[in-house]
Design a protein around this nucleic acid. Sequence first.
DNA 1: TTCACAATCCCACCTTTGGGGGATTAGGTT
DNA 2: AACCTAATCCCCCAAAGGTGGGATTGTGAA
Lengths: 209, 209
Amino acid sequence: MISVAIVEDLEDIRNPLFEFISTREEFICNIAVESVEDFLKAADKNDFPVDVILLDIGLPGISGLNAIKLIKEKLPDVNIIMLTVFDDSDKIFGAIQAGAVGYLMKNTPLEKIKQAIIDTYNGGTTLSPEVARKLLNFFEKPKSKIESQLTEKEKQIVACMVDGQSFKMIAANLGNTLETIKSHAKNIYRKLHVNSKAEVIAKSFRGEI
Amino acid sequence: MISVAIVEDLEDIRNPLFEFISTREEFICNIAVESVEDFLKAADKNDFPVDVILLDIGLPGISGLNAIKLIKEKLPDVNIIMLTVFDDSDKIFGAIQAGAVGYLMKNTPLEKIKQAIIDTYNGGTTLSPEVARKLLNFFEKPKSKIESQLTEKEKQIVACMVDGQSFKMIAANLGNTLETIKSHAKNIYRKLHVNSKAEVIAKSFRGEI
DNA sequence: TTCACAATCCCACCTTTGGGGGATTAGGTT
DNA sequence: AACCTAATCCCCCAAAGGTGGGATTGTGAA
């Protein structure tokens, strides 16, 4: 019997999923929670080892993406299948690199989800067709970088931000005043549609710049 | 209606496959041949554009693997699904790099092959679970051995920081006060020898946490 | 039983950052 | 000439972040 956990904030999705899985004789579902925080708590109390986790990628609070690393530290051998409504390739690659082994759209028929859990448990993996094609495309030809809309100077400043430098340090390093760097930062935020240095750094590391 | 071609030397496999596909109303099969050479000849004479090819990877003469390149020169937009009896990762990667978009074991049930053809035609792809897992393992980051000195709670907060969240947002998401998060942040900075959120995010993305 | 430490919260004070205005200069386009 | 943009700098003010102190509770190890 395969022990399955569900981490999904929307009741309309979590409840039918729980209903389905807990009534299959192949599965047992001791954990069906709405957040990563709740899952980590539940996993501590649970006697059954968790075999497979169905994890929403877009959870509020700790996102499913960041949760993978946290969960794998606690449960290194668990198989994580990501659930998503979007076909978001950035998140797909993030999830894969973090160690997820499956990636399904939420509208996947229940019978296919069942098969995916079984395949995953047996060391296979299930990707929705769109996700699989994205992976193959990655291999076929090195991805063409999206031409950044940032100017040369702005890219330099982003690079300094990514190093963890304060505006003051950036100004010193690039030979400008603090005000100049602040001014550039404002323009960078506008172009990237963000409003903090933290978001710029995150975007940069995700390859979105 | 999807035009499907079959290139497979073994009659025991080719004939049932042809029987199945040509009797589905979704498909038409004008080409069911035993070699790549025959396929290329048939493709010239055929009026129907070929949409999907089921191609044996281990053909005598020109192998399926080498055939991909040849076929794609003549029919650049065709979708090639490889058929194999072996779970041979070298051949898998070769086929993918050459431009195949699907990879199925020959013992795959006919209904799944049907679905794979439809998915492939619609821009998706189908990999058998074992093949998919191999691909994912290729992408997965080797996990760092450095045991994090951060507590569970602290790791959660770092995960939120990495998402670009403000302390206020983190407090709301984790159900704490702002002061609690600030207090944890202080401890995180001390443990990681940094003094800003930006540095924590940078460290995290570099896998140094 | 002490002791350490994680987790929770609070206050005060200061620095950094973000958003809203500007301005000037230099370089190109139309 | 009129216009745009990049790059440089300035001011002000509010929001967010960082630092240095606390306090309390609970758990688990020495």
